[in-house]
C-alpha cells in the first residue's frame, strides 16, 4: 500500500513549566533546531532531517504534559474525508484555523476514546533539512547534542484502549504492529500509519489520559550511547537505559525534560509491510517485552507520566 492517508506524526505540542529551560533541553541537548517563536510565546522546533517547519511546539503552562499530537495527511481532500469519517465514528470535531500555529494549515482536532487530543492537517510550510536536494550531503554541519533525526512517535496511557485502537485502525487506516495481551484483554497496542514499528502506541491504564513519552529517532546504537553521555554531562534526569526493547526491538534510552515530560531517543527498531503479521507478547512476558535484557518491570518507567 502506498501511503495515501495519514503520512506520519507531524508534531507534538508539549506543556512545560519553564520555557527557557525547556528550549535549552530540546534545542541544545536533544539537538532539535529552533525555527520559530509565535505571538503567544510558543517555541517551534524541528529535528534536522525533517522537511516541514516544525515537529515540536513548546508552550509554557502551569502543568506539564501533552496538549495534542498531530498527524500530517496526504492532502486536503484526505483531511476532509477523515473529518467526515471521524464524525461518523462519533468523535467531536473541532476545526482549528490555519495559522493558529504559524506555518501550519487548517487542523482537524478530535478526542480519541482514551481522552487524548489528536489532530490531522494537510499543509505545513517547507523549511528543509539543511541539505541541498541536488547532490545532497549525508548530513548538515553544526548539529547539537544528541542530533535527533526526527520526531518519531508518542506513547500514551488511557482507559478505553479498545476504542482508540478501533479509531486508529478502522478510521485512520493504521496497522497494528505489536501488542501485549492478557488472554482476551489487550494491554498495549503499537500502531503505524506507514511501515514503522509504531507511529503511536497506547497502554491501557485506568483514569485520565496521560502522556508516557515523546520519542525521537537516532541513527545508531553509538548515538544512543552518546545520548547517555550527554544525559550525564548535562545532568538530565535519566529514566532507563541504554537498553533494548523486546517490543519493536528498538535500542533505547529514556530521560525527562526539565518539566518532567518523558523523552526517548532510540534507533534500529523493526518495520512492517501491510502483510507483516502482528507480533504478540503475552502478559507474563511483559518485563521482557519492555526491557529485553533485565526482563523486569520498573515502577518508575511504568507508573510515571505527565498529563494529556
Amino acid at each position: 500500500m502506498a501511503m495515501t492517508g495519514v503520512l506520519r506524526p507531524g508534531h507534538v505540542q508539549l506543556r512545560v513549566l519553564d520555557l527557557d529551560e525547556a528550549v535549552t533541553h530540546y534545542r541544545d541537548y536533544l539537538g532539535l533546531i529552533e525555527t520559530h517563536r509565535d505571538s503567544q510565546g510558543r517555541v517551534y522546533l524541528k529535528a534536522w532531517d525533517e522537511q516541514d517547519w516544525f515537529s515540536v511546539v513548546l508552550r509554557e503552562a502551569d502543568e506539564a504534559g501533552m496538549d495534542h499530537m498531530a498527524f500530517k495527511v496526504l492532502d486536503e481532500e484526505t483531511l476532509w474525508r477523515f473529518q467526515a469519517d471521524l464524525k461518523k465514528f462519533g468523535c467531536q470535531i473541532e476545526r482549528i484555523a490555519a495559522g493558529e500555529l504559524d506555518h501550519c494549515g487548517e487542523r482537524v482536532r478530535f478526542a480519541a476514546p482514551t481522552g487524548h487530543l489528536f489532530e490531522l492537517y494537510a499543509n505545513k510550510d517547507h523549511y528543509g533539512n539543511g541539505i541541498s536536494t541536488t547532490n545532497p550531503a549525508p548530513w548538515p554541519e553544526g548539529l547539537k547534542g544528541m542530533q535527533a533525526v526526527r520526531f518519531d512517535h508518542c506513547l500514551v496511557y488511557g482507559e478505553d484502549l479498545d476504542g482508540s485502537v478501533k479509531l486508529f485502525t478502522e478510521v485512520l487506516g493504521f496497522q497494528l504492529t505489536e501488542q501485549i495481551v492478557d488472554g482476551d484483554l489487550q494491554l498495549a497496542a503499537f500502531m503505524t500509519c506507514s511501515t514503522k514499528a509504531h507511529d503511536v502506541a497506547f497502554i491501557r491504564q485506568e483514569g485520565k489520559a496521560k502522556l508516557h513519552h515523546a520519542s525521537f529517532m537516532l541513527k545508531t546504537w553509538e548515538n544512543v550511547l552518546r545520548a547517555g553521555d550527554i544525559i550525564s554531562m548535562k545532568d538530565i534526569a535519566l529514566d532507563m537505559g541504554p537498553t533494548r526493547h523486546g517490543l519493536t526491538r528498538g535500542q533505547t534510552i529514556y530521560f525527562f525534560d526539565p518539566s518532567g515530560n518523558r523523552n526517548e531517543v532510540f534507533c534500529e527498531d523493526s518495520y512492517v509491510y501491510p502483510d507483516t503479521p502482528v507480533l504478540t507478547w503475552t502478559a507474563d512476558r511483559t518485563g521482557q517485552a519492555i526491557f529485553y535484557h533485565s526482563r523486569e518491570l520498573n515502577d518508575r518507567f511504568m507508573g510515571v507520566t505527565t498529563g494529556a
Binding site: 525527562f256 518539566s259 507520566t305
Partner: peptide
C-alpha cells in the same frame, strides 16, 4: 522518585 522535574 519520578521525573525529577515537578511534572509527574
Amino acid at each position: 522518585v519520578g521525573c525529577r522535574g515537578g511534572g509527574c
